[in-house]
Design a protein around this nucleic acid. Structure first.
Lengths: 119, 119
DNA sequence: ACCTCATATGTTCATTTGTTCATATGTTAT
DNA sequence: ATAACATATGAACAAATGAACATATGAGGT
């Protein structure tokens, strides 16, 4: 007989664990915001854009050329990235130059790369 | 007249920028893998599971209880997380205990939180 | 004022994704 | 072997997403 038999049975779980988990979960709003950030990162085109901007601030047409995609497609994806503040931009005449919004983005991507290169 | 007029015109972009971007982009395979990791993070339920596991290794039924969701739903999401090696598990009798796969996951989530708390 | 270029947005449509229900594994105890 | 339980999986469907088209906006030059 164990002192702490692991029982579950739908309603019989480890109360303490459950309470701890619940107490430490951020609010629903935070969860949604966070998931939207990762969702935006979860697309090949957008990742390429961010990896490109990691090197150097660029205008939309350079991004389109570098990724061999239409300007419209790039612009759509940039809007998604703007909405979650992954990129910021600055206007100079007709051109709009995009860059990464903050250092967190870089770290998130770097740790992601570390993960898949399995350390 | 500027010394470096920003011209674009579909085929007229900054060659150097374009070359630099292309030269530094990871291969397509890496991009796909990376996007799948973030895609997996881009869901509220899966984020909650990871935030829960951040605290303490847990079995499926505790996760289901803590998040007030069906065992089936949790199990399905755990499979997604397993597929991209965001979680690992260990069997103990009937129970299966899940935990975060490595430290990178924690950092990715932490930087994500830092980002949305805009600091 | 006009025209052109760079970028942004709306709409439609095909595909992907998440959830639920029902069922299947796999483990322990009798 | 059978029962009971924890977890996993398959099918079906609604909802979210992405690509591609046309069109709109905003800036500079004429």
């Amino acid at each position: 007989m164990k002192e702490k038999a692991p029982v579950c049975k739908v309603t019989l779980f480890d109360e303490e664990t459950v309470q701890t988990i619940r107490a430490n979960l951020p609010g629903e709003e935070t969860i949604i915001e966070l998931s939207e950030v990762y969702k935006s990162l979860g697309d090949g085109t957008r990742l390429k854009i961010l990896l490109a901007l990691k090197e150097k601030e660029s205008c939309v047409c350079d991004l389109a050329a570098a990724l061999s995609m239409s300007q419209s497609a790039i612009s759509h994806q940039l809007r998604v990235l703007r909405n979650v503040r992954l990129v910021k931009y600055r206007r100079e005449g007709k051109m709009v130059y995009y860059s990464l919004d903050d250092e967190h983005i870089l770290k998130i991507i770097q740790e992601g790369l570390n993960h898949i290169e399995h350390k």
